[in-house]
Structures are given as structure tokens and as C-alpha cells.
Design a protein around this nucleic acid. Structure first.
Lengths: 221, 221
DNA sequence: GAAATATTTTCAGGTTCATTTAAGCTGCAG
DNA sequence: CTGCAGCTTAAATGAACCTGAAAATATTTC
């Protein structure tokens, strides 16, 4: 899950970014409206966390411009608590959720997860498919036989993304984009290697290869 | 957890009530604004799920009246999707969260739980887990073998936080934030050091490290 | 208020393991 | 058959973590 964090507070920003990475997101952090607008236009984020108090352009304008350009990524707005007008304007500009400062990190995570689930309108929230289930809190999978495996960060991010996009063909570059935050090397077989590791845990059935196109996480039929 | 469900749809209401009971809530179901207002005034609910489309009084008025009477229970509003004006009015009237219809039951549950967590600041009962127990008054732990150790302040805060969040992966930055008052240095290995000291007291089993992600206080399985 | 004690933090080295790279292999498609 | 795309291993890398002890701070004792 690739996430854009727009936050200009030099303390809060990096700390949040760090925490979010710990939760398995690929996080890009920017601190100005101009950067935000550019990144949001260029990169297919799954979620954006947008602080409204930016130094240059207002966060709301950034959001409005994205929407005008047809960007539909889920956007969660962050702003001073109890500021009524801002909250209203935010929804009007096309925000999907709202969180007032100060907040607990746990609450932010919950809302981000809820947003992802809501916008990816794949059913049944707790990620379970093809006989396996993914525990997002513990970052573990439980296989059909009931065995529970602890996943590493990259394994977790990859598997979660694929489970959230079941039955879609996901190219290697697409996966790379959504799993890593910085821009990608072109010639590397990391994805292949990690696919292999997942298959070793899950068996060869669930993840299928579409030669020349990518991989598919498929419910057994 | 006592929950008031205000929903006048004769199909949806009972079904939801039943589902919520399945999730362990004590559910009262009412279908009119008048009943809702009365019940909400009389009984100390933990959460209220409030549908806005009621036959008599508007749900918003019910909410406003509760708030005027000083009721502070968590309220989640239920209403037609994407009507942001209602959403705005709802927050303005004092709602804590919002969910548009149609929704997945799982999402409702998640939000209700989130709400409870947010509003319920759990008070310190004596913490016991994984064979050890923590005395919050004396700031001591008693290990499996019955040995009692006096903890220093930092040791105590760290251990208590971890015991309160068993089975969750807690990153070092996250722990730092919750254990120290003022904001933290970035590069320091204090947490590592204190984890080590706790392990020296408790043994290596209880606190596991999830490399790249954080630490977990885990019940033995 | 200085010495003794306790606690917290820093430092430096050593170790482990997630991630990446690389190189040879397999098998399908044209 | 030939070439490309994906598979599979194994080894290299380096960040993340561990650890013991010393230095810095805070607290208590005399």
C-alpha cells in the first residue's frame, strides 16, 4: 500500500512516516502543497493523508486540483480539532475522511485501514481468501492447515496488496510501485524472489503467473 | 458494552441488533426518536448507533437534545451515503463518527469498536499476562517463579505499556513516544537497552522482536 | 552541600537476518 | 530451435538489533 503523507511539521511528519512504515505502508513524505500536488498527480497512491496547514498552497486547493484532474485516491484530511468550517470545506472538496489534531496514532491507523477497505470495496474486511487469512495487526498469515507464519515487512506488504486486489493481474512494475516508496530500479528480480517466498509459505496454487503480464492472486474455483 | 440502536427500518433494525449481540454487545433497539431520546437520557450506554431517517423526530434533534442534557456517550450516525450536508450537520450536532448506507456490517463493527476504544480510556486494573503480574502501586513484577522485582520508572512504564498492548507490534519510535513525555531524540537505542533489562528479569520468551517492525509482548502459546 | 547511590543514556563492538544481487536453470512461445 | 520471461539458489550486503560497560544525570544520604 503506497501512501502519501503531506505534513509540514518537521517533528510530526517524519515520526508519522516512520510509524506508518512500521505498519506496512510504503510512505512518501512531502511538506509543501506544490510537492504534494505533483506527487499525487504522478504516482498512483492508495491513500493520501493531507494536512491542511501547509506553508504554500492550501491543502484544500491541492485536493480540489487533484479531483479536477480526475484523481480519485482516498484522501484523509488532518487539521486542527473542532474547526467546523474546515471540516465542512474538506468534505466538499472531496475528502473521504477527516481527523482532528491532536489524535492518537492508533486512531489514524484505524481510519486509514477503514478507508482502504472502503475504497477498495473488496468485501469482508478482515483479509481472508483462498483458505488463508492475514492478520494485519500481527503481520502474520494463517494457512489452510492452520499454520501461522510471521511475515517480514516486504512479504507482508506484497501479500496484503495482492489479497486486496484478488483476481486482478498485477504486473511486476505495478507491484513494485505499490510496495516500495522510492522510485524503482528497473532491472531487478526482487518481486520474483518474494513471490517465490510467498509461494513457499502458501503453496503454489494461490498465486498464479500470467506470463508477460504479471501475477494474480486467485481464489480457488 | 451496552449499546443503543436507533433504527426504524423493520427489516434492518432487528437484523443489526442480532448481529451486534453476536459480537458481544448488550443491544437495546428502538425505532422512534421519542423512544431514543428517553432511553439515551435514562441509561448509560457505551455507544449509540443512530439512524437519521426516523418517523417522528429527526435523529439530529435527538442527538442535539442529548448533548444539551450533557450526555456524552459516543454516537455513530447512520445515513444515506454521500450526503455530505448531513454528515456535516451530524458532526456539528455532536456525533463522533459517521457511516453511510449501504455499509458492510464488518465496517460498522470496526467503527463501533474504534469508537469505544477512543472514548474508553481503560483504567489500570492489575495487569497479569504470560505468567507474570505487574503491581502498579508498588511498581514491581512478579515472575513465574514467584520472584518479585522492583522496577525503575522507565522499566515500569515500558513494561506496563507493552502489557497493555499484548500481541501488538510496537515500533521503537512508537514506544518512545508513549513512554517519554517530551518529544524524543531520533538516534538513540534506549528502548533496546531497556528491552534487554526487562528480558534479563522476565526471560527471553515474553518479549519478542520483530525485526524491522518492533517488539511484541506475547502470551506463550 | 558533598559523597554515595541509583537511574538513565550513550557508546562501541559484535551478531543476526531481511533484503538485494547475481548467475545459472527451466520451460513456454514463436 | 532459439530467445525471453520467469524460476530457483546461494551468497553479499548492510541495516537492525544485541550487549556490556562507561559516562552522564538524578536522587538519596550523611
Amino acid at each position: 500500500m503506497r501512501l502519501l503523507l503531506v505534513e509540514d511539521d518537521p517533528k510530526l511528519g517524519p515520526r508519522l512516516a516512520e510509524d506508518l512504515r512500521g505498519k506496512g505502508f510504503a510512505v512518501d513524505l512531502v511538506s509543501t502543497g506544490i510537492d504534494a500536488e505533483f506527487m499525487g498527480d504522478e504516482i498512483p497512491y492508495d491513500v493520501v493523508i493531507l494536512d491542511l496547514g501547509l506553508p504554500d498552497i492550501s491543502g484544500l486547493d491541492v485536493l480540489r486540483n487533484w479531483r479536477r484532474n480526475g484523481k480519485t485516491q482516498a484522501v484523509l484530511i488532518l487539521t486542527a480539532r473542532d474547526d467546523w468550517q474546515e471540516r465542512v470545506d474538506g468534505f466538499q472538496a472531496g475528502a473521504d475522511d477527516y481527523l482532528g489534531k491532536p489524535f492518537h496514532f492508533e486512531e489514524l491507523i484505524e481510519r486509514v485501514n477503514a478507508l482502504i477497505r472502503r475504497t477498495n470495496h473488496k468485501v469482508g474486511t478482515s483479509l481472508a481468501a483462498g483458505g488463508i487469512s492475514l492478520d494485519e495487526r500481527k503481520q502474520t498469515v494463517t494457512t489452510e492447515m492452520g499454520q501461522e507464519y510471521q511475515l517480514t515487512g516486504t512479504e507482508f506488504r506484497l501479500l496484503r496488496y495482492m489479497m486486496m486486489h484478488q483476481n486482478e493481474i498485477l504486473s511486476k512494475t505495478h507491484l513494485t510501485e505499490h510496495i516500495y516508496d522510492d522510485v524503482s530500479d528497473k532491472d531487478s528480480n526482487v518481486i520474483e524472489v518474494y513471490i517465490r517466498r510467498l509461494r513457499k509459505i502458501l503453496g503454489d496454487e494461490l498465486i498464479k503467473t500470467k506470463r508477460g503480464q504479471g501475477y494474480v492472486f486467485e481464489e480457488r474455483s
